[in-house]
Design a protein around this nucleic acid. Structure first.
Length: 356
DNA sequence: CATTCGTGGGT
DNA sequence: TACCCAAGAAT
């Protein structure tokens, strides 16, 4: 299979051109200051489906607060979620802490250096395993992300649908032969850096490309037609109503989201999905067993997820007496304490408009 | 294999 | 505006 893709391909020349380009042209990024496996690991988790420019400030703050594997292992979950607030895909940081604790307890605090062992850690999939092994330990392992599939689909004229899960293995098999055995770290990072800077999704900069002479897509004028990627269906919308509820002491009511699922364990303002013709008050009565008299809506917030859209209408209301449902996940907090809790971006917008 | 899981930026 | 997408993993 992979022999077919690498037939008549000048592997050594390609490796050298790519690695030399990377060594000369790589960006200075905070996680490239050290090969500490923990630091590399944290950066790779943050970079999953997330842009470099977005990650940089989060990475710097995270390493300041959790400089070592042990520091992260001992941290409170609310602290790590707060450090991740706004970054998205929050299971990443909970899985990271679970994995770090596993390393402390089962590997004497040393990140494992075999694919078998590192892949057993929570949140470490095929890409992250290869990235840490090659970057931190210099092992010739494939690290196939979206950049790598795009670059190699062009260079080797691979016309498989990269949206299919099975396609990743095609590139992994190719890379076991193709990855540089001299400098696997620079080779793997070079493929990704090339994808980020030159071999971009639209209008690739072929005239600046260090491996243009190796590129089969460029030879055939197909660089704009690759990779092949099927579309995914668009999101469905949900109508939501949220309320900033204040009591006589000037406190606001917040609640912790469920242990699993969307935005798991983040905090939010009480909210309901408005389904049929029932009023918003009736929905709150049914879900929270509290009687609220709502004023006119304060704002509307749209929260777009990968697979879902919330259209949130935000209300404010005063309550008297003891309207708390009594659940452990709900609590009244002084407004000044709001910054201690991690909220989804939509609820951060509510905070900015209603409480600050 | 397809879906779930965030967010912000680019075209 | 409406997509697409970015150093993916878990289910």
């Amino acid at each position: 299979m992979e022999q077919m893709h690498l037939q008549d391909f000048y592997i050594t020349e390609f490796q050298d051109d790519l690695v030399n380009w990377f060594l000369e042209n790589q960006r200075e990024l905070p996680w490239r200051m050290s090969k500490d496996p923990y630091r590399v690991w944290v950066s790779e988790i943050m970079l999953q489906q997330t842009r470099v420019d977005t990650v940089i400030p989060y990475y710097n703050a995270f390493m300041r607060e959790f400089p070592t594997l042990e520091a992260l292992a001992e941290a409170e979950e609310d602290r790590i979620l707060k450090a991740w607030e706004g970054l998205g895909y929050y299971s990443r940081v909970r899985n990271l802490q679970t994995a770090v604790r596993e390393v402390v307890e089962q590997y004497e605090g040393r990140v494992p250096d075999t694919r078998e062992e590192i892949s057993s850690l929570k949140g470490v999939g095929p890409y992250t395993a290869g990235a840490v092994l090659s970057i931190a330990y210099g092992k010739p392992e494939p690290a196939v992300d979206g950049n790598v599939m795009r670059v190699l689909s062009r260079v080797l004229l691979v016309e498989e649908d990269i949206a299919k899960a099975s396609t990743r293995k095609i590139f992994e098999n190719i890379l076991y032969d193709l990855v540089s055995k001299d400098d696997p770290s620079s080779f793997n990072q070079g493929l990704m850096e090339l994808g980020a800077l030159i071999c971009t999704p639209t209008s690739p900069g072929c005239l600046l490309c260090p491996v243009r002479e190796h590129c089969r897509a460029y030879d055939h004028g197909k660089q704009n037609d690759l990779p092949i990627k099927s579309k995914k269906k668009k999101q469905t919308a949900k109508q939501m109503a949220a309320v900033v509820l204040r009591n006589e002491r000037g406190e606001v009511l917040i609640e912790k989201r469920p242990e699993t699922g969307l935005l798991a364990r983040l905090w939010q303002f009480p909210n309901v999905e408005v389904t049929d013709g029932r009023s918003v008050e009736e929905h709150f009565q049914a879900s929270y067993d509290i009687e609220v008299v709502l004023d006119e809506p304060i704002q509307k917030v749209e929260h777009v997820f990968s697979h879902l859209i919330w259209n949130i209408t935000v209300y404010e209301a005063q309550v008297s007496g003891q309207p708390d449902g009594g659940q452990a996940t709900r609590k009244w907090i002084p407004v000044k304490d709001i910054e201690k809790y991690a909220f989804p971006v939509s609820h951060q917008k509510i905070i900015q408009k209603s409480l600050l």
